[in-house]
Design a protein around this nucleic acid. Structure first.
Length: 546
RNA sequence: GCCCCCGUAGCUCAGUGGAUAGAGCAAUGGCCUCCGGAGCCAUGUGCGCAGGUUCGAUUCCUGCCGGGGGUACCA
């Protein structure tokens, strides 16, 4: 609705500009912070000042005098401050906004902007060497929410998890399991310090003992230990993600890229195109030709490819699989490696404009004032599961979404535990539960919403403020999806809750005036729709009771 | 050394090229005849420092200071 009124205003303003023979400038609509400045303001006059060589206020005056706006949409127009033109929405327009929301229901806020287009979001992508950490949790929640947002603007989205099961880490993991296995069989072993120390390694070994007895005692090949570890750990990872409501559509592994020749094909292709050369016994990629500060080794002198090769080959498959939008979500530790991948793709002739790389900063855990150092190897990390045990899935998701991804996140565990009852997510969910309670109450009294024509009774300030808030939702969804900024949603939703709680305090819903009751029930229903739709995107529950 | 991110209220964090910079937690005082008090209302402090661009900078640019991360023929 807000989007409709903006395009209406834009067409009116553009017509006036054309009339006056004034140049088109890129003016913007915004929602003023201060109530006295109206509902929508436009900075047009200030931008025109230089072009037209008049005072902004005078320009604004000229424009406003020529505007003939529909009074059912815009109640009045004012010029203020340095030359803002402020518009005040007509109550009638707001009341019709409620009707619009009720008619749209669970589709309110959805767009078809990208209908028919395919997007892929790659995230988490943690190697199966241990349980997910709190840091992975941040990425998991961000990625899943971005995927939701893209779905809301029309994309068909695939969630993909890429993992590396070909490298040295997995060998160490496998050998860690082997040693624990031998230990369980009573052999005396020496467990290296840089091996995986976690208790879960013993669990995996225990399963092997149960399944194979001592049959693997002399097994020199690590394959069975590796496969077993990979399967067990992945099962746990999936279970953890499922607790947060996250399900991946596809898992892609590095080994396949070697097995099916994809890595080799990329090497040949780079050579053929002249982007690779031999030096010091290694094969180098001419990354400097694509703006990098130095060339990179892609095949070591030992004959092994470096990690960049499978990364490039993997990304090539994303293009070959036909995605219109490719989103990569990485932790800050990858910040210096993805440009090589992009350069590689450019060298192969792909349009990297389709790739959106998102970097999120790390989570630093605190226990009170003490910083908790985390290392999967040393197994002194707090797992994502433990965090969910402590605060629940809703709080976990909400907490990770309250911060923008480029901000470092200090997570105080003891605070999260003690404050879990006072958490902002409860405040927001409470509004939803409260609405459900009112509706139950009405139901018990035999009152049902059925009269859309009562909406003109919504005239109280807190009613109109709530409606304005609800009408912002679609624009917000679209902007969050466009800018890949899921955190704005949590802020918005808690703003909706505030507006609702105010309305609830000021206005009695179920009363003697049947028509007014109908109007306010409609507003409650509309609020519930917006909250529920928002919760669906951020992935928290919409409780009917708390 | 070089590259990336961050520096906003006591704490954790939002936000904006513009008109009076916000939320949650923490603190203090109010609000229950009646739909859920997990609520509402009221009270305080802040854009790291210095230049520049601009009609206007907390926002953009440069330098500095402080914190985090990267910078391998490891992944």
């Amino acid at each position: 609705m807000l989007l409709q009124i903006e395009s209406y205003l834009k067409s009116q303003l553009d017509a006036v500009l054309a009339d006056l023979n004034w140049p088109a400038v890129a003016y913007q609509f915004e929602r003023p912070k201060v109530e006295a400045h109206g509902d929508i303001s436009v900075n047009l006059a200030m931008l025109l000042a230089r072009e037209v060589k008049q005072h902004p206020r005078q320009i604004a005056r000229t424009i406003v005098d020529r505007l003939r706006l529909d009074s059912r949409k815009i109640a009045r127009t004012e010029i203020a401050g340095p030359g803002f033109v402020n518009f005040f929405l007509a109550p009638e327009f707001l009341q019709q906004g409620v009707r619009h929301i009720l008619e749209q229901g669970e589709h309110y806020g959805r767009f078809r902007d990208h209908a028919g287009q395919k997007a892929q979001v790659e995230f988490v992508s943690a190697n199966p060497t241990g349980p997910l950490t709190v840091g992975h949790g941040r990425q998991a929640v961000l990625g899943d929410t971005i995927a939701h947002l893209l779905e809301w603007v029309g994309y068909q989205v695939q969630r993909e998890y890429y993992f590396n099961n070909a490298g040295r880490q997995m060998r160490i993991l496998a050998d860690s399991v082997r040693l624990r296995y031998l230990e369980l069989l009573g052999e005396s072993i020496e467990f290296p310090q840089d091996y995986y120390q976690g208790e879960y390694i013993r669990d995996i070994a225990r399963h092997l003992v149960e399944e194979y007895g001592d049959a693997l005692k002399a097994e020199k090949d690590l394959e069975i230990f590796k496969t077993s570890a990979e399967q067990r750990i992945f099962a746990d990872i999936k279970k953890t993600l499922a607790r947060l409501g996250i399900v991946f559509d596809s898992f892609y592994n590095e080994l396949d890229l070697y097995a099916n020749g994809a890595v080799d094909a990329v090497v040949q292709s780079l050579k053929k195109k002249g982007w690779a050369y031999q030096k010091d016994g290694a094969l180098w990629f001419k990354a400097t030709a694509f703006g990098r500060d130095q060339d990179r080794v892609i095949i070591k002198s030992s004959g092994e490819p470096t990690y960049r090769m499978p990364d490039i080959a993997y990304h090539k498959t994303k293009f070959d699989r036909g995605f219109d939008l490719i989103v990569d979500l990485f932790g800050a530790d990858h910040i210096d490696t993805y440009p090589d991948v992009l350069a590689g793709l450019q060298a192969l002739g792909y349009d990297i404009g389709r790739v959106k790389v998102l970097i999120h900063q790390f989570v630093t855990l605190y226990e009170g004032k003490e910083k908790v150092k985390m290392s999967t190897r040393k197994a002194n990390f707090i797992t994502l599961d433990e965090l969910i045990d402590e605060v629940g899935a809703d709080v976990t998701r909400w907490f990770f979404l309250m911060r923008s991804m480029q901000s470092h996140l200090n997570f105080d565990l003891s605070l999260a535990k003690t404050q879990s009852e006072e958490n902002p997510v409860y405040y927001t969910q409470y509004a939803h539960a409260r609405i459900c309670s009112i509706l139950r109450n009405a139901e018990e009294k035999g009152i049902r919403f059925r009269r859309m024509e009562a909406l003109h009774r919504l005239v109280e300030k807190s009613e109109l403020e709530l409606i304005k808030k609800l009408m912002e939702f679609p624009k917000l969804v679209r902007n969050c999806a466009r800018d890949f900024e899921p955190h704005l949603l949590t802020q918005y939703l808690s703003g909706v809750s505030t507006a609702f709680h105010k309305f609830y305090t000021d206005c009695w819903v179920i009363g003697d005036d049947a028509e007014l009751t109908q109007a306010r029930l409609a507003l409650c229903l509309a609020t519930r729709i917006v909250l529920a739709n928002g919760f669906r995107i951020v992935g928290v529950s919409a409780p009917e009771r708390m």
